[in-house]
Each structure stands twice: as structure tokens, then as C-alpha cells.
Amino acid sequence: MAHLFFFYFAGVIVLTSILVVALRNPIYSALSLLIMFFHVAGLYVTLHAEFLAAVQIIVYAGAILVLYLFVVMLLNLKREERYHAQFPIGALLGLTIVTEVLLLAFHGSSPPEPAPSGTSTPATNGVTEVAGVTDAVAGPALSAVEGNTETIGESLYTTYLFPFEVASLILLVAMIGSIVLAKKDIFEQQ
């Protein structure tokens, strides 16, 4: 059953992401990206990240995609030649990276198994195989007993309080910057 869900979501994600790049009309590209966002949210639900699934739909599908569609319709584009002259180079580079990653994925050591859901400690058995890396990022454990949103919120306001504040600053800067950039003749009023 889990495999069925995964392959459905993965298939739709790959298909729609190829359509985003391949489709001629930018509006169709944006709409297929919308479908992709919904399926990524579904994939998050199967990974027990319900909060992120909701945020994915609200922020990506609700805000970012609408902004894209606004701009596409505002600019009223005529269809033009779609592919850049660098098409062969891009395809070659993409193929190289895909081959590399597939080689790495199939030659690596066996992936760690998820810890049994009863334990709330950071999985000791599985993690040791990945070694080193996980020690540095050892945060609060993801317990299945508590709610997912509660766990994220707790670690966001304790361990990651400073990055959280920096994120709010980034949003403020982006807001001011986009207003200044898009406003007509803001510097030529005098």
C-alpha cells in the first residue's frame, strides 16, 4: 500500500515537473507546477510531515503560484521560441548529473531503517551507520506520539529561534525590495 502511494506521487511529480519545463505556454507550466505542489504535499503526508504538507499547499499553491499567474497574465506574453541555444549542453549536463546520482544511490551502503515509532530517542541503530553527519545536527527527536506541528513548533522556538528571527527579517527585506523594484519611477519623483 505504501509503495502504491509512493509510486503514484512520485510518478505524477516527475511527469508534471517535466511538463513544467517542456510546455510552451507559461500558464500551463504554472498550472502543472500547481499539480506537482499538491502531490509533493501528499508525499509529505505519507512521510508523517502533516504540518509541512499544509504549509506546502497554503504557501506554495496558495501564494507563490498565484503570484506567478498574476505576473504571467499581467505581462500578456506572446508565444515565442522556447528553447535556448544551449539545449544540447543542458541536456548533456542533466544526463551526467542523473547518472552520477543514480550510481551513488545504488553503490552506497544500505540506507538506515526508520526507528520503531514507540521510541522517542534519536534512533541509535540506524543513525550510527550514517555516522558523523548526524551527530552534528542532532536535534530534538521526532516523536510519533506527540503531534507533528507541536514538535516542529517547539524546536522552532527553542533550538532554531535565531534562524527563525532571521527568516522574518528576510521576508521583510523581500517585501520592501519587491515594492521598490516594481514601483514605477520611485526615485524620480523629485
Partner: peptide, 14 residues
């Protein structure tokens, strides 16, 4: 984040 049972990955997605 799911396979290592560590919430840090989800915070980074945020």
C-alpha cells in the same frame, strides 16, 4: 527527517 527520526529536516524545509 523521517528516516532519521529527527525534526531538524522539517524545520529546514520551513
Amino acid at each position: 527527517s523521517y528516516y532519521l527520526q529527527n525534526v531538524a529536516g522539517q524545520v529546514f524545509v520551513f
